[in-house]
């Protein structure tokens, strides 16, 4: 049962509070749902709402997005992510849900974490250190303060999410990618316990024209990098079966 809500007013204070224990809460879309509808083990909530962690800055093509920036703010702040954010929950949730919080939600949610993986983002921790997102593992008491990534050049960002509904649905398969002359990064969501990169697909795509044949081959190759599960939305079989289709569609700009 929650007996206190802490509201630290700086990143340092938040880190100190978190180090003492308690459940960290950003937008509340996950934590409050639990608090409202069942017993919770924690006795304290640490709300980051007033920790000064929100805001977007872009410097020399590198974006720094504060951890408690909401998706509604991010959508208007960084245009290239608009389509990705459109597929993420609903506008009312996006007014609360945060960039940092999205790193902690389990698959098949957490599409933005998939984007960050494709963007090769770094995760900034309260202590001031940064870790590449691919290597980052959350440690107890650690607070994410921001994420940082290079804004992809126009025409190099690809995003596609297959859903059971056209809006407001978790992922069957999420594909996020940056494909440039010298950069190929493909990240997948919905098809493993966490977001995953697909080195196999990346190898196929590297240096190639994005023709149908190449994309089909990349989609097939991506099967090597996934570990899909059954859930309320789709079976592991189905996710595996349609992954190549959606990898191709991510680059073909077809509707889902």
């Amino acid at each position: 049962m929650i007996t206190a809500v802490r509201m630290p007013e700086s990143a340092e204070a938040a880190a100190e509070a978190a180090a003492r224990g308690g459940r960290v809460m950003a937008g509340g879309t996950v934590v409050m749902a639990e608090v409202n509808t069942g017993p919770v083990a924690d006795t304290e909530l640490i709300s980051l709402r007033h920790a000064g962690l929100s805001g977007i800055t872009v410097n020399e093509g590198v974006a720094r997005v504060g951890a408690t920036t909401t998706f509604a703010e991010l959508r208007s702040g960084l245009g290239f992510l608009s389509e990705a954010i459109r597929t993420l929950a609903s506008p009312t949730i996006r007014n609360l849900a945060t960039v940092g919080g999205n790193l902690f939600v389990p698959q098949p949610y957490g599409d933005f974490a998939v984007c960050l993986l494709a963007l090769d983002a770094t995760v900034e921790i309260a202590e001031g250190q940064e870790t590449p997102i691919a290597e980052w593992n959350r440690r107890p008491g650690e607070i994410v303060t921001a994420v940082r990534f290079a804004v992809p050049r126009e025409g190099t960002w690809f995003y596609h999410k297959a859903m059971r509904r056209k809006l407001n649905s978790a992922a069957i398969v999420t594909v996020a990618a940056v494909v440039d002359r010298d950069t190929v990064r493909v990240a997948l969501g919905g098809v493993a316990p966490g977001p995953v990169r697909s080195p196999a697909a990346e190898r196929v795509l590297r240096g190639q024209e994005l023709t149908r044949d190449v994309l089909d081959a990349a989609g097939e190759a991506a099967l090597a990098d996934i570990d899909p599960r059954d859930d309320a939305y789709a079976s592991a079989w189905y996710r595996r079966r349609v992954l190549p289709v959606h990898v191709r569609r991510a680059f073909q700009n077809e509707e889902a």
């Binding site: 059971r164 509904r165 056209k166 809006l167 978790a170 859930d231 309320a232 939305y233």
Partner: peptide, 11 residues
């Protein structure tokens, strides 16, 4: 209602 699927207004 997230997991229990029903068509939304877009569907």
């Amino acid at each position: 209602f997230t997991e229990y699927l029903m068509p939304g207004p877009a569907d």
